[in-house]
């Protein structure tokens, strides 16, 4: 067991080489995670977004983890530096953004955490972004390609996105955002027993989450009118824009599906139909290999 004070002292000292930095980081990971989690907890307390329960504890851990992940990578290009100082400055910068986290009391239920976790992953992962179309509306990859008006090459990429997501992406995302097997079972039982209530709840929560994460996009990524969407598809541009915005905006997605139907293309209308697990070889992914089992 490494002496905590010793690690703190070394993290405050000047690190001169990448080797030294990487050795120290490996040793200090628990300490760094703890430090970033403490700062996150403090931020949440000070902004009136805290509660003394395991949900909040897990939120602080998750956001602390995301900060450390960034810090480990950024730090390599900041050497020589004092790691703890650098971590603190990264954290301060991150917290100084408007609404750095998607926090809402309503999102603390298993369903809320699932939706929020999935969407936050979609912001950093193209696989997860494409998978949102499946999890929210039940679209398969060919349906996604149709709705987004993709060509052959891009469609192949969507197949790859779906494949990776099913094989490992979903499991990793669920683990890393802190959804346990019990959470998944609770969501599924809720869906089975009270389908109408579940649907209404999922509809409301997914709108809260999407509105938050859509805001993180640049200001020049607004909702478009039907004519503008039609123009964009007809002229064949804005590929990134289509993927990003339509995955996170149900209203625009409906507009686009209407545009396609006007062009007598065979596309589904997006109805919220929440799927918890991805399909692998025609079966739902069941395996669960979390460390707590």
């Amino acid at each position: 067991m490494v002496d905590r004070r010793d690690v703190t002292a070394r993290l405050s000292q000047l690190v001169m080489t990448v080797d030294e930095y990487e050795r120290l980081m490996t040793e200090a990971l628990p300490h760094l995670l703890n430090h970033a989690t403490t700062q996150t907890r403090r931020f949440l307390r000070e902004t009136g977004q805290w509660g003394d329960d395991v949900c909040h504890e897990k939120l602080a851990l998750r956001w602390g983890y995301e900060l450390v992940e960034r810090f480990l990578m950024y730090g390599r290009t900041e050497i020589p530096c004092r790691p703890l100082f650098f971590l603190d400055s990264l954290i301060a910068k991150y917290f100084s953004q408007p609404e750095p986290f998607c926090y809402d009391k309503e999102l603390l239920s298993p369903l809320g955490r699932f939706l929020e976790g999935l969407t936050s992953r979609a912001v950093i992962s193209r696989d997860a972004l494409m998978a949102l179309f499946y999890h929210l509306y039940g679209f398969g990859q060919s349906q996604v390609a149709k709705v987004l008006g993709l060509g052959t090459t891009e469609t192949q990429r969507v197949y790859k996105n779906f494949e990776r997501w099913r094989r490992s992406g979903w499991q990793r995302a669920v683990d890393e955002v802190g959804i346990t097997r019990e959470d998944l079972m609770e969501i599924e039982s809720h869906k089975r027993r009270y389908p109408d209530q579940f649907h209404a709840e999922a509809d409301r929560l997914s709108r809260i989450v999407q509105a938050h994460y859509r805001k993180s996009e640049p200001e020049h990524f607004p909702c478009l009118s039907r004519q503008q969407w039609a123009h964009l598809f007809k002229e064949g541009y804005g590929y990134d824009y289509r993927v990003w915005h339509l995955a996170l905006c149900r209203d625009c997605l409906s507009e686009v599906c209407d545009v396609h139907q006007d062009d007598s293309q065979d596309v589904l209308t997006p109805q919220l139909d929440l799927r918890i697990r991805p399909l692998l070889n025609g079966r739902l992914v069941e395996s669960y290999h979390s460390v707590d089992h």
Partner: peptide, 29 residues
């Protein structure tokens, strides 16, 4: 609850141990 948070912390630490960088066999795509 403490065990839940602790198990989660361990899970995150194991993810951080893999970070950063790209798995040797991961296609950059």
């Amino acid at each position: 609850p403490d065990d839940v948070a602790d198990a989660y912390r361990r899970r995150l630490l194991s993810s951080l141990h893999v970070q950063p960088g790209l798995d040797q066999d991961e296609d950059p795509g």
